[in-house]
Nucleic acid binder design. Structure first.
Lengths: 196, 196, 196, 196
DNA sequence: TATGAATGAGCGTTCATTCAT
DNA sequence: CATGAATGAACGCTCATTCAT
């Protein structure tokens, strides 16, 4: 076997293992919470020895970080993609729907973002999301779809509403991403347009 | 000593001990997070033996639950009290301020509510708070301060906003209860009044 | 049972357990070297659960230290006691015999003194022993049993000889405390007395 | 390439690798103590894969043994070389100086000799050194430089003194090889010459 | 009730050794 | 021979819980 072929294979194995650990961790997060799982559980579920885990991640902490970062990235890409077209209000609605979709898929995982010590650069990530919303709002105002509102506060409060609904209200009633996004947009629309 | 006197005394001791445990747990929650403390620490801080802890609470879990319940009760009483007077909008503002005040005072503790398995009757409690808001809104509409809005959704979304702001935005900027409550009320006012 | 009786009993249990741990550790030291044993082995040999070990000693290190300190104390007391009478040369001989007796009893344990990080105050302990020898020599000179020798160096070299013989030569031939002590004293006698 | 040329090359590679492992191990011994290093560290420092280590040494133990043996050989050659000329007393002094020089250079390594299970043929090696000293003493007596002394015991005790001083006293005061060798020779001189 | 010493399963992590390539 | 990813037993230590007093 040629060296670079072997390297390719090894690289694949590496990716496969990292992915197996990631998948195992995600499942365990959902089952036991963001740090309520053990390394042995991850190893078992990923189908490898405990020692192997430590080849890929030097500490449990790193697995948590990695899962947190990966999930955020996944979320951020989705939410960025989905808000590329449409009116400002439509963008907010799609943003919201995307937020809830992600929340349903990763119910337990969204809690990750609540732990500064776990998802590193948490503040920075949060601000990236706020920035996305702020730009939507600014554009809305620039294009006279929205009346003049404070884009900072509006973005913050809109995001707050989504976070709160997703993380806290979800426990008392099921979320229907499409319907709830529409409904929430209707709730905040008067603030942005001046009309009910 | 008469039996019922002894009973009274015992009842007092029981209350005193439960309270000592509660106080100790609250302090430790604030210092080490909702499960980052040990039963020994609670016993020490409460001034009793660890075995005694287990007379009052059969498991660590129960202490966490009890603290969660007590805090909620405290919160619920405050928020009920504070919304007894004023216009609907004023009530919402005071409710919000109260919410944030509580959040600042119990920063670490608020996480408790995020754990369904920990704060029991979480759903029920949440609904009590929603109900409070709903009544404020209904009254606002009845008294023609508010336009006709869906009181269920409005309550849910208002509460979502407060939860989201308090639990998630607080990490990227400090909360100023009075100012932020006012600002948030201004954000949702158009929804309720139809005017900016 | 009266409180102070109970306390006494508990105190006895405490002493018993500490002693059981000490005994277990000593045996394991002899078998596996000064840090080649595990806490589980100590627990098993001492007839208690691993957790109990940690009630008495907060870390493995502390067990090692305790054994080291205890052994030194035992040794120092013996050696002090034995050198209270007789001529200077007799004292040195008895000191040597005592040294070897201790070495035989605690073959593996004497290594402890070779590890500064383990037997704390090692330097200080060593100097206590040197001091003892120095005083014997000074007295010998004062009483004209010995000629004028440098007491510091003489003590250091005498002790070196004993350490070296006990720790290194013992491996190639058995030590006979009485005989070897006599023989060694004969070896160094000319230095002290000027006569063979 | 001719077979015996290839064999030669392979032999060279083998020697090179063994030597690289030895060098790495020596450095790690000095840094982390005689068993405080890992096989991975040795492999890294020797510039090879960990698997390769096991081709040359079937177990960690063997590396330790090999280092011990090599160091002894190095020491034995030095000490033999240095005692080829001069009077008996000069030889003993040079032997001592050489001993201390080696001890300073290999402070951490000297502990190796204290572990019977590690330095194999320890007894035999020790006896080689004793033999060297014994011969010096015998020659001293034969040449009437020394009075009649028991060459066995004299050798043993002299070596004991050096071992003890180097391994145990070194911790309470720095060793100055030249000065201390002279001083120690002065200490034992009366035994050998009958004169102070 | 109250005590706190005792328990031991379980944790995160290490590392000598193996073996498929 | 050389490689280094994989292994898993073993480590020191923690702590919720129990139970004899």
């Amino acid at each position: 076997m040629m060296p670079n072929l072997r390297e390719k294979k090894q690289e694949m194995v590496r990716k496969f293992n990292r992915s197996a650990i990631y998948d195992a961790a995600v499942v365990l997060f959902k089952e036991y919470g963001f740090d309520g799982f053990t390394m042995q559980q991850v190893a078992d579920k990923a189908g490898m020895a405990i020692g192997t885990l430590y080849i890929y991640f030097p500490a449990k902490e790193e697995i948590i970080r990695y899962v947190g970062d990966s999930l955020f990235e996944k979320f951020y890409i989705s939410v960025t993609e989905v808000t590329k077209q449409g009116s400002a209000l439509e963008k907010i609605e799609l943003f919201s729907k995307c937020f809830f979709d992600f929340g349903i898929e990763n119910r337990a995982l969204i809690k990750l973002f609540e732990h500064a010590e776990i998802a590193n650069n948490r503040k920075q990530k949060m601000q990236m999301v706020v920035e996305l919303l702020r730009n939507i709002i600014k554009t809305g105002t620039a294009q006279q779809e929205f009346i003049k509102v404070d884009p900072d506060k509006s973005a913050l409060y809109t995001l707050s509403l989504l976070f709160g609904y997703n993380n806290h209200i979800a426990d008392i009633q099921d979320i229907n991403p499409g319907k709830d996004a529409k409904s929430i947009v209707a709730f905040i629309k008067p603030h942005f347009t001046g009309i009910n």
